[in-house]
């Protein structure tokens, strides 16, 4: 037990929390954007998967990590675009569309993987590139803090930066204000001349960019290759993080970090010799418990009309 406590209060553990939380933070910011626009998007799982595959394939064929990242984001945004088209233009049920896209994500990526590399499990036969880790000069010299903050993947810094950008975007820009007003009351927003469909479209595509970055990180930073279903419910956990954060930027980031910690914990607890399954269950149990204590942003049928 002592050993476990020691490793929990170590710089490496905090470092690994940030590493695990990176895709969750990015996807949670995406979930926040769609939530603000009043769209229940559960397609992040699929967006992230396609982005992860797109990144690996792009970087392998174009021999450039940057182009790989861009092609990954492109793939993810296409999925977001399909989602937006069906939900906004063809008036499809958002949850069913998200569900269909997630099915497409897990099946379609394996299909594409098999066609491209002849393997249904991983993309190791492709010589794909990764996004490098960077150490911040000066900061890395600071004891303790340096080893926590410095030396992360570029995408991790991008994730932290995205939190600030999303905060500014939602709270300080005209488009952000429009998105928020549509989420609050689309009819009222429309009556003052805001184009609801177009604005929602923009919000979903922007969310697609953020979630895709999370997906690209999975296959080009977290791991150096693509494996089937590698997103493993992170897209859903991001939605849960957004729920916990109550639609606010900083609490959403903190909940994403909490889930990241739940994912990082198993590595530390290995010395306890608990079955692997209990540890794998942990992030999901933490999510459900947290949802139970915080409650939904959507009030239950019983409570909605009490006033």
């Amino acid at each position: 037990m002592n050993m476990v406590l020691q490793s929990i209060f170590s710089a490496e553990f905090v470092y690994s929390i940030l590493r695990m939380a990176t895709p969750l933070i990015l996807a949670a910011m995406a979930a926040l954007l769609t939530k603000k626009a009043g769209v229940m998007c559960i397609a992040f799982e699929s967006i992230m998967l396609f982005a992860a595959l797109g990144g690996v394939v792009g970087s392998a064929f174009m021999h450039s990590a940057l182009l790989g990242v861009l092609s990954g984001i492109f793939c993810g945004v296409i999925v977001a675009f399909i989602f937006a088209y069906f939900v906004l233009i063809l008036n499809a049920n958002t949850v069913l569309t998200g569900l269909a896209l997630n099915t497409l994500g897990s099946g379609g990526t394996v299909f594409a993987l098999y066609v491209i590399c002849g393997d249904k499990g991983t993309s190791t036969s492709l010589s794909s590139l990764t996004v490098p880790n960077v150490s911040i000069p000066l900061v890395e010299k600071i004891p303790l803090l340096g080893s926590i903050v410095s030396g992360h993947n570029i995408m991790t810094y991008a994730a932290l930066l995205s939190v600030i950008l999303v905060y500014i975007f939602i709270n300080k820009t005209a488009l952000g204000l429009r998105i928020r007003s549509i989420g609050e009351n689309p009819q009222a927003a429309e009556s003052v001349g805001i184009k609801v469909v177009r604005t929602r479209f923009i919000a979903i595509v922007l969310a697609g960019v953020l979630a895709s970055m999370g997906g690209v990180y999975m296959s080009m930073g977290y791991l150096p290759f693509f494996t089937r279903d590698m997103v493993a419910g992170r897209g859903f956990m991001a939605i849960a993080a957004q729920n916990l954060g109550g639609g606010m930027v900083v609490p959403t980031m903190l909940s994403a970090i909490l889930f990241g910690a739940a994912e990082a914990l198993p590595n530390v607890m290995q010395s306890l010799r608990l079955p692997a399954e209990t540890m794998q269950m942990l992030p999901y149990i933490v999510t459900i418990t947290a949802l139970f204590f915080v409650g939904g942003t959507h009030k239950g049928e019983g409570k909605r009309h009490k006033k």
């Binding site: 229940m40 849960a240 949802l291 939904g296 942003t297």
Partner: peptide, 13 residues
């Protein structure tokens, strides 16, 4: 029913 948590996310968890 008790907390108003939408079942989409909690059921996937």
């Amino acid at each position: 029913v008790k907390k108003g948590v939408l079942p989409v996310v909690s059921s996937l968890m």
